[in-house]
């Protein structure tokens, strides 16, 4: 498809999806969402947005494939190593000291790299046993991948470098079992993690947490939706619970920004101070 996708076409698409599949993409950020839709159209050689909608009509099960393609699943273990060291040195020890346990939600966990980073971090702090971890994503197939927790040797190189920059003291690869070029996380490390499918947009708060990681997820939403989702994250935090967003995200523009204080501005870690 050579020409630009028009806003009216996108509206027809998101409306059709909302009416038929109960997913709401209407407030996704325009430029990245358009790019993702175009990508699907080119990948499956559709001629237009209309042709994509027609495919949904003829074959509703195609929708799950669409969700997998539309969501961005680029992630790394220990991405932004200094963020992870501040969790290790400040945030998590404080929670453990206060409550002797910690509940953590990875909202938008993708293929689980950050979940694994967290488990390794907790293991090294000797408090993995004190943690309850929930990891959610909108996409069933990526949740399956996260549960499988296998990584290609090529990706492991970067993960290992990040771990070393984070100041990890162990042999990083000792947390994995290698099999035919793939590295599998040792099952005991992630056995406490509950992986679930959950849509941040349509889903409701389901529990309360001491720490929520929602990094580089809300960047795919427009400001209206960022506001709505932030309210849900706020509602899912205990008072004085911590929220971590991506290093280039901000709460400044959100309606309920005043219910949080900045704990670490460089790493974008906030603390809920008001209900």
């Amino acid at each position: 498809m050579q020409r630009d996708i028009e806003i009216a076409e996108l509206r027809r698409l998101t409306q059709y999806i909302d009416d038929n599949f109960d997913y709401d993409f209407k407030n996704y950020a325009m430029s990245s969402f358009t790019r993702r839709v175009r990508r699907v159209i080119e990948l499956y050689k559709f001629t237009s947005v209309e042709a994509l909608i027609k495919k949904f009509k003829n074959n509703p099960s195609f929708f799950q494939e669409f969700v997998s393609e539309i969501t961005v699943n680029v992630t790394e273990m220990f991405r932004d190593p200094t963020f992870w060291s501040s969790l290790r040195d400040e945030i998590i020890p404080d929670v453990i000291k206060e409550h002797r346990k910690i509940s953590i939600w990875h909202a938008g966990c993708s293929s689980g790299e950050e979940v694994i980073s967290m488990c390794i971090l907790l293991k090294e702090l000797d408090c993995l046993e004190s943690a309850t971890i929930v990891a959610t994503d909108i996409d069933q197939s990526i949740i399956n991948k996260a549960k499988k927790a296998s990584f290609s040797a090529k990706n492991m190189e970067l993960n290992k470098q990040n771990y070393e920059r984070y100041g990890g003291k162990n042999d990083f690869l000792s947390y994995f079992v290698e099999d035919e070029g793939f590295f599998y996380i040792k099952p005991e490390l992630i056995e406490r993690v509950s992986f679930r499918v959950q849509d941040l947009v349509k889903g409701n708060p389901f529990s309360k947490f001491d720490l929520i990681l929602c990094r580089n997820v809300m960047i795919y939403f427009n400001q209206t939706l960022q506001n709505e989702v932030l309210k849900k994250l706020h509602g899912s935090l205990f008072k004085y619970g911590n929220l971590a967003i991506g290093s280039k995200e901000s709460l400044i523009w959100c309606d309920i920004a005043n219910k949080f204080v900045v704990v670490n501005n460089e790493e974008k870690i906030y603390k809920k101070i008001k209900d």
């Binding site: 950020a29 990245s32 961005v72 680029v74 992630t75 960047i219 400001q223 280039k248």
Partner: peptide
């Protein structure tokens, strides 16, 4: 008139 960031591939 805003900017957005993305971690796409």
């Amino acid at each position: 008139n805003t900017m957005s960031l993305s971690t796409e591939g």
